[in-house]
Structure formats: structure tokens, C-alpha cells
Simulated scan of single mutants.
Amino acid sequence: MFNLKPYLLLILFLFTNSTFAAINSDYQVELDLSADHSESNNVPMPFFANGKMQSKLNVTVSFSDGYGNPVSVNDEEVRNSLSFYIKSTNIELTKDQDCSYRRDCWGYTYSENDYVHQMGTSYQYAKSLPTSRLLSTPQNLITAWVYSTEVAQYRAVCARIQFDNNTTYDSCAHPYDENAIYQAVQPVVYTANDFAELGEGEKVWEEEDYDDFYFSYAEVRNFYITPIDPSLRLVKVSTDNWQESNHDNEFLNDQWLGCYSDCPEGFKSVKGFLFTPGQERTVTHEYVWNSAAGESRTAKWRVNQKLRSVTLSKLLYSTQNTSQNDTQSEYRFIAFDQYGNKAPLKLTYPESEFTDGGQRWDYTQWNLVSQ
């Protein structure tokens, strides 16, 4: 029997894709670019040149054939054919470029990140830049996100569309001169002076099931790295240079403070945790196992009660282990505000009073300082 199925599938494929024509050099193009605008001032909003804060770039484009009839092109084809460059320098914006370690870097992406895209009203910059018009009936509306590490008062971004014969339509070529205007301003780098004192911390858990034989008293204290400026909030944290951590980090695990019965309040061990900002939640951690008793103890406490802050937790407990860690004199990390501006910070520790036991640093006392 003759099998019609392959032919039916082919017909179905051609029918469903017939509305999406290839972008070829015979098509006429009408293209408009506009930066994200302030509704009140109708001018492009500035963004911080920190390589992380994104500013929206709206691309509206329509295609027509040689008779002026509209031609449908799917958005993915448009995105694949688009490129952008700085008008004054002809420097290309690299797609998905990592600008973290590059100066005067410009990039764009089609993936929106979760940093704030517009500055708050507390940031005032010059607002005298020209604006772009919008097409009234666009065929395609493409959203890109521009970011940079170059501080620049005036940058016009142009677009190119490459056709299938390798010719290009240039939005800034004569007689078009269609571009989007951006200003990238100096990013902020915070110091420890921009944050509240850590203080003695807040006790959020203590061990009640202890017998001073198998298990000793333990407690958890939370410390909050909180911006003094109430308009700022910390939204990410980096534990490895500029790479924001998406998970909590145990940064300290010293099982022997270098003292025995003369330890402060009897504590002999300490663990430190750095929690990524976000929702308030309860966390647990099994901090000690006693083989003689055949059981363990688990700490349970709340973190991220202060939503503008990064939460540090310190678990003080006792154990009979004799391992030690004499290499950790400070812990470095970077916190980021909602705009992607960084705060390079570190925790330092004073010299221990119990150096005869082999431990040089007293991790029970934390001080927040700048890197």
C-alpha cells in the first residue's frame, strides 16, 4: 500500500512554515531603535557602567517585498540576523560578552538578568539627550539588553541586519541615521563604612539537648551586612571574584580553636555560613556527631530576616576533634546591590589568646572591613 504519511508530514511542514520567509536582500526594511525611556522625561535612563546592570534596547522592524507588501519574518530569524555597534567608534557590541574584567566593554544579550534596569530617583544625572521615535505598526518587536563598563555621557547604538547574501542593512547608514542613545555612568564601589556595624550578632538558636558529657552547649548567631542607605539593598553575593553565588556557602569550619577548658564560654569549634540574599527561610545543619553516643546534633535557625542584607551565621559548639585550621586569617567576598554595583568586603579576626594550643586566629570575633 502506498504510504502517504511522509508526504502529508512534508505538506504540513511547508504549510506551517510558509508564513516565515527567509531574510533576503530583496526585502525592504524599516527599522527603529529606542533605549529605555523615562515616562516622565521621555529621555534615555542612565545605567551604571559596571558590566552587570542592563538597559533595555527596543528594536522594531518591518519587512516588505519589492511591491511594498508586508513580509512576515519570525523573531528568531530577526535576532539571528541582528548586530549592534557604537556609532562614533564603529565598535561592535558582542553578544553575551562577559564584561566583568574588561575596560570600556560593551555587550548585549537577549537574556534579561534580575538586576534593576533603571536607577532610583536618588541618582541624578544629566537628562538632555535626544530621543528616538517608534514605528507605529511594527512587524517584529525585539528586546535586547545593553550593558557596559565604559563611562560615557553619550553613546549612539546602531543596528545592522545581515541578509542571506551577506549584504547588510545599516540603521545608521545614509540616509537613515536611526540609533538609540545611552549614557553609562560611573559605577559605585562600596566600602565597609557604607554598612552598619556587625556588633555581637543576634542569637537565633541554641542547643537545649546537651549533657556536658557527650554533647556540650552550642549556639548560632546571625550577623547582617546591611547598607546604611535605606534605598539600597543587597541582592547577590560573590564567593569567587565576580561570579555571583547561587547557593549558600560554608566558608569556615574550624574544629579546634586551640584551647580546652579555658575557651571562651567553653566553645572549642566554630563554623561560618554566608547566605545568599532572598526569602526568609529556616536552615538546618548537622554540626557534630558523637560516635560513643551514636547520635548527632543539628542546628536549626532562620536566615534572611532582613531583606536588604546579606546574612552571616556563626555556629559555636564543642567537639573532641583535634584537627585545626591555621590558614584562614580572613574571608573575602563581594556583595552586590540591586544595580550590580559591588561591595568588596572581608571578615577579619583578631589574634587568639590561646596561641599555645596551635590556633593563631580567634574566629569567635568577626570584624567587617574593606578588601
Results as ranks from 00 to 15, higher is better:
residue 2 F to T: 01
residue 5 K to A: 13
residue 12 L to V: 06
residue 13 F to I: 02
residue 16 T to A: 09
residue 17 N to T: 11
residue 22 A to W: 02
residue 25 S to C: 12
residue 27 Y to S: 03
residue 27 Y to N: 10
residue 28 Q to S: 10
residue 31 L to G: 06
residue 32 D to Q: 14
residue 43 V to F: 08
residue 44 P to Q: 06
residue 48 F to P: 07
residue 49 A to Q: 05
residue 55 S to H: 07
residue 62 S to G: 03
residue 66 G to E: 15
residue 74 N to L: 06
residue 82 L to E: 04
residue 89 T to H: 12
residue 91 I to K: 09
residue 95 K to R: 15
residue 99 C to G: 11
residue 102 R to G: 00
residue 108 Y to A: 04
residue 114 D to V: 04
residue 114 D to H: 12
residue 118 Q to Y: 07
residue 119 M to A: 00
residue 122 S to Q: 15
residue 122 S to K: 15
residue 123 Y to L: 06
residue 125 Y to A: 03
residue 126 A to N: 12
residue 136 S to P: 00
residue 139 Q to L: 10
residue 139 Q to D: 13
residue 140 N to W: 08
residue 141 L to C: 03
residue 147 Y to T: 02
residue 148 S to H: 03
residue 154 Y to N: 07
residue 154 Y to H: 13
residue 159 A to R: 05
residue 163 F to L: 03
residue 168 T to S: 08
residue 172 C to Q: 00
residue 173 A to Q: 08
residue 179 N to L: 04
residue 179 N to G: 04
residue 181 I to K: 09
residue 183 Q to D: 05
residue 188 V to H: 10
residue 193 N to W: 04
residue 227 P to T: 01
residue 228 I to N: 10
residue 237 V to W: 07
residue 241 N to S: 05
residue 241 N to I: 01
residue 243 Q to D: 11
residue 244 E to W: 11
residue 247 H to W: 12
residue 248 D to K: 02
residue 250 E to Q: 14
residue 251 F to M: 04
residue 256 W to R: 08
residue 259 C to Q: 04
residue 260 Y to C: 03
residue 261 S to E: 09
residue 267 F to E: 02
residue 268 K to P: 00
residue 271 K to A: 01
residue 272 G to M: 12
residue 276 T to S: 06
residue 277 P to E: 05
residue 284 T to N: 15
residue 292 A to V: 14
residue 292 A to E: 13
residue 298 T to M: 11
residue 298 T to N: 11
residue 298 T to D: 14
residue 304 N to M: 06
residue 305 Q to A: 10
residue 308 R to Q: 15
residue 314 K to L: 11
residue 315 L to P: 06
residue 316 L to H: 01
residue 317 Y to A: 00
residue 321 N to G: 02
residue 323 S to T: 13
residue 332 R to F: 07
residue 333 F to K: 03
residue 337 D to F: 10
residue 339 Y to D: 03
residue 343 A to I: 10
residue 353 E to A: 06
residue 355 T to P: 02
residue 355 T to R: 14
residue 356 D to A: 07
residue 356 D to H: 06
residue 358 G to A: 08
residue 359 Q to C: 01
residue 370 S to L: 03
